[in-house]
């Protein structure tokens, strides 16, 4: 009985000390972590919506999306973070769209775990700049090994076809979701 009490007391004591210490540290760290997270979102939004001056999270939909404004506080479009499956794992991207949801303003890859040197080329400027002012009417499409002819086409990366396609598929999924939400009663 004595050992049981001893054991309980020891564990309780260690638990209390550890909990107290961690809550202190966490109180100090959490605001900073939150700040980094916000800064990161803001950076990505301004990259995919180059003319944007401010943004606001839209709250009446069940997914994350931002409305973007210019200097005069006029709406110039949306910034939509979206994720889906790549070649090896999740790809998370941020896409900038105009108000009519038929044109891309820009694209950034936020997170990916593609093959280094191959699939990771989707994060490089050469691939991403294809999405600048790309038409999304009816959807974004891809072509292989030849320069794109249509307004809504991009060229896949040689040796990373699957990753390139994955980006387009995720993109289209996200646009479709936003369009559906718009149809269902608009996004505020």
């Amino acid at each position: 009985m004595k050992t049981v009490i001893h054991m309980l007391l020891t564990l309780t004591f260690i638990g209390i000390v550890s909990g107290g210490l961690l809550s202190q540290i966490s109180e100090w760290a959490e605001p900073k972590i939150e700040e980094h997270r916000k800064a990161e979102t803001a950076r990505a939004i301004y990259l995919v919506q180059p003319e944007a001056k401010s943004y606001e999270r839209i709250t009446n939909v069940d997914f994350e999306v931002y409305k973007v404004f210019d200097e005069m506080k006029n709406s110039i479009g949306f910034a939509l973070p979206y994720e889906g499956n790549g070649f090896q794992g999740k790809i998370r991207l941020m896409v900038g769209l105009n108000d009519e949801l038929n044109k891309l303003k820009g694209l950034q890859i936020l997170e990916q775990v593609e093959t280094p040197g191959l699939g990771t080329k989707i994060t490089e400027e050469n691939f991403l700049k294809q999405f600048l002012n790309l038409s999304a009417q009816p959807m974004v499409n891809w072509v292989k090994a030849v320069p794109p002819e249509k307004q809504n086409e991009i060229q896949t990366i040689t040796g990373a076809t699957i990753s390139s396609k994955a980006v387009v598929i995720i993109l289209n999924d996200g646009i479709k979701k936003l369009r559906d939400a718009e149809k269902d009663g608009g996004v505020k």
Binding site: S18, L22, S26, W28, A29, E30, K32, I33, H36
Partner: peptide
């Protein structure tokens, strides 16, 4: 675990 959490939080911050 306590020290690991400290490291994790500090690094994140």
């Amino acid at each position: 675990a306590t020290f690991v959490t400290i490291v994790d939080l500090v690094m994140k911050a």
